[in-house]
Amino acid sequence: MLLDFLTYPFLRYTFLTGILIGIIAPLLGTFIVVRRQSLIADALSHVTLAGISFGLMAEKKYGWVISPIYSGMVFSVIGSIFIEKLRTVYKAYQEISIPIILSAGVGLSVIFISIADGFNTDLFNYLFGSVSAVTINDFYVISGVAAFVLVIIWLFFKELFTMSFDEEQATIAGLHVKWINMLFIILTALVIAASIRIVGVLLVSALMTLPVAASMRIAKGFKQMIFLSILFGEIAVIFGIISGYYLDIPPGGTIVMTSLFILLVAIGIKKIRK
């Protein structure tokens, strides 16, 4: 069953990229979920769509060849900075930053798509993911993003944990909470932009939250929750990509449904334990 993925280079890159995404998306998702910021991933994925649309429009209208993954990342990072700024402007209503940025992302996407009079490229791939959309260049970019994310999380793990558990305590202790929050949200933006090739704009937040929601039910401790989240994420990505390919279904759908199945099993295990 895996033979095609070993034989055809484009499938191999998709598979390897999927494995990387299966690590970094749930890893960041763990911090996002415990900080009750799950919807941030949705806002940033829609801003990424605006970036992708911009890249595609620039190529079609003006002949500028910008890889959509780069334009998506740039927009996502800018969107993440705006979210963080809005969270400090509306201290008592921090969640309001999410619908503002999400609607801005959708609004810009519509404008760019209209200016380009639609796209020849199948936008469907970016919405729901594709097993054939990952190029060798994408693979290298995503590998770089994954390495960067892993190093930063390793270096700042104790600060991120402290802030996630009790942000006020972290501030009192003298941690640079503002800057670490900014760094974290930029990492999130990069991971979302990197994941969109495979999972798609509409489903990327599911890969960041569903494995975490499942592991949260059964984990003892934060590190175990991270380990289980990554394990569940990997199972969902590998099974989702392979089944998506053989069933001719966008992998975003199969990855999310696998994650959902794992979540239901985890809920069941918790109930049985009780």
């Binding site: 944990f161 305590q169 972290a170 202790a173 175990q224 929750m225």
Partner: peptide, 22 residues
């Protein structure tokens, strides 16, 4: 957040974060 899956050890360890430094 009572649902935060952190062990007693992890929570107490977080008290050392600032003292240890980056």
């Amino acid at each position: 957040n009572k649902g935060f899956p952190a062990t007693v050890y992890e929570v107490v360890a977080s008290g050392l974060t600032a003292q240890l430094g980056y």
